[in-house]
C-alpha cells in the first residue's frame, strides 16, 4: 500500500509540471503584454519607462527562462506580486480567498451526496416504477439546466419575490455586531442560494450514476447468494449492494474537482462571493498575469489532490486493492 502510494505521488509530478507549462505557454503566447494594461492606464508613460517595467517583470527574457524563473519561485509559494493597484503578493490574495471557495464546495459536495445517494438507490430498487420514471425526468431536467440560470431563478424567487434570503456577498452589513450564533446564521443565510444552485445540477448527475451502479451490482452473483441465504431485502440492498455501488462514487467525486473549481467562477460572480473564482475573473479582466498563473496553478494542485484523495479512498475501502 505504501509503495503504491509513493508510486502514485511520483506519478503526479510530471503531470503537475505539464499543467503549469501548458498554462504558462498559453498565457504568454497570447497577443498583448501585461505591461500594455499598466501603460494604457497611464498615457503619459514613456517607451523607456515601459521597457523598465518589462525588465522588472522579466518579460524581456526568452519564454523558457521566464518559466524556469517562475517555477523556482512557485516552489517557495511565491507567485509574485499582483499587477493590481494594491501590488500585494499573489499568494496572500489566494490564501484569503481559497478557504471561501473550498468551504462552499465541501458543503455542496456533502449535500449532494446526502441527496443523490438515497435518490439513486431508491430509484434503482424500484427500477421502471412510476417513482423511478418521475425521478428520471426530474434528473434529466436538472442535469440540463445551466447552473447560472438556476442561480438567477433562485435569486429571483427567494431574494426578490419572497425577500427571504440575501442575494450577494457572504456577510450582512451588521455582521460585526453579531454574536457567534448570529454570525453562523448570517453565513448560512448567505450561502444558502449559491449552495442550492450548485447542488441541483450535480445531484442530477450523481443520482443517475448511483442508480446505474446499483442496477449493475444487484445483477451480480453475490447478491443472488445473499438472497438465497435468506437475508432480508433490506440487508441485501443496504449492506451488500450499496457498499459495492458506492465504491466508484469515490472516483467520481475526485474527478468532479476541476468542474467544481471552474464552476466557482460563475457562481461567485453571480452572488458576489469573494472566493477564488471571483478573484480569477477579476485577474483575467485586468490581465493580471501573476494572479492568473497563481490561480491556475493552485487549481491544478487542488485537482491533483482531489484525484489522489479519491484514489486513496478507493484503495482504502476496497480490500482487493488494499492487499496489493
Amino acid at each position: 500500500m505504501l509503495a503504491w502510494l509513493a508510486k502514485r505521488l511520483i506519478d503526479m509530478i510530471p503531470t503537475f509540471f505539464g499543467i503549469t507549462l501548458i498554462s504558462f505557454a498559453i498565457l504568454h503566447l497570447a497577443p498583448g503584454k501585461p505591461t500594455d494594461v499598466l501603460t494604457e492606464m497611464n498615457p503619459k508613460i514613456t517607451p523607456e519607462a515601459r521597457l523598465r517595467l518589462e525588465k522588472y517583470y522579466g518579460l524581456d527574457k526568452p519564454l523558457h527562462e521566464q518559466y524556469v524563473l517562475w517555477l523556482k519561485r512557485v516552489v517557495k509559494l511565491d507567485f509574485g506580486e499582483s499587477f493590481a493597484s494594491d501590488h500585494r503578493p499573489v499568494w496572500d490574495k489566494i490564501r484569503e480567498r481559497l478557504p471561501v471557495t473550498i468551504n462552499l464546495n465541501l458543503i455542496s459536495m456533502a449535500l449532494m451526496l446526502a441527496i443523490a445517494v438515497p435518490v439513486g438507490v431508491s430509484s434503482a430498487v424500484r427500477a421502471y416504477s412510476l417513482y423511478d420514471k418521475i425521478t428520471t425526468v426530474i434528473v434529466f431536467i436538472g442535469f440540463a439546466a445551466p447552473t447560472f440560470w438556476l442561480a438567477l431563478l433562485l435569486m429571483m424567487f427567494f431574494g426578490v419575490t419572497l425577500d427571504l434570503l440575501p442575494i450577494s456577498g457572504l456577510k450582512s452589513m451588521d455582521h460585526d455586531t453579531m454574536g457567534f450564533w448570529g454570525k453562523t446564521l448570517d453565513y448560512a443565510r448567505h450561502i444558502a442560494l449559491p449552495i442550492l444552485a450548485g447542488t441541483i445540477g450535480s445531484v442530477a448527475g450523481l443520482s443517475r450514476y448511483m442508480r446505474s451502479n446499483m442496477l449493475e451490482v444487484v445483477r451480480q452473483d453475490f447478491i443472488t447468494t445473499a438472497r438465497a441465504k435468506g437475508l432480508s431485502e433490506r440487508v441485501v440492498i443496504y449492506r451488500h449492494a450499496l457498499r459495492n455501488a458506492l465504491l466508484p462514487v469515490i472516483t467520481i467525486l475526485g474527478l468532479s474537482v476541476p468542474g467544481l473549481i471552474g464552476g466557482s467562477v460563475i457562481m461567485e460572480n453571480i452572488f458576489s462571493i469573494p472566493g477564488m473564482g471571483q478573484f480569477f475573473y477579476q485577474a483575467l479582466m485586468t490581465r493580471d498575469y501573476p494572479s492568473i498563473m497563481g490561480v491556475l496553478t493552485i487549481g491544478a494542485a487542488l485537482t491533483l489532490a482531489g484525484n489522489l484523495l479519491a484514489d486513496v479512498g478507493y484503495a482504502a475501502s476496497d480490500p482487493r486493492i488494499r492487499a496489493r
Binding site: 503531470t15 505539464g18 501548458i22 498559453i26 497577443p31 476541476p258 468542474g259 471552474g262 467562477v265 484525484n307
Partner: peptide, 23 residues
C-alpha cells in the same frame, strides 16, 4: 495518455476563460 491526464487535471473552464480573455 500522459497529455490526456494533464488536460484532465486542468480546471478546463479556467483554461477556456483565460484563453478567450486573451484572444
Amino acid at each position: 495518455m500522459r497529455f490526456v491526464d494533464i488536460m484532465l487535471a486542468i480546471p478546463t473552464f479556467f483554461l477556456i476563460l483565460a484563453v478567450i480573455a486573451f484572444l
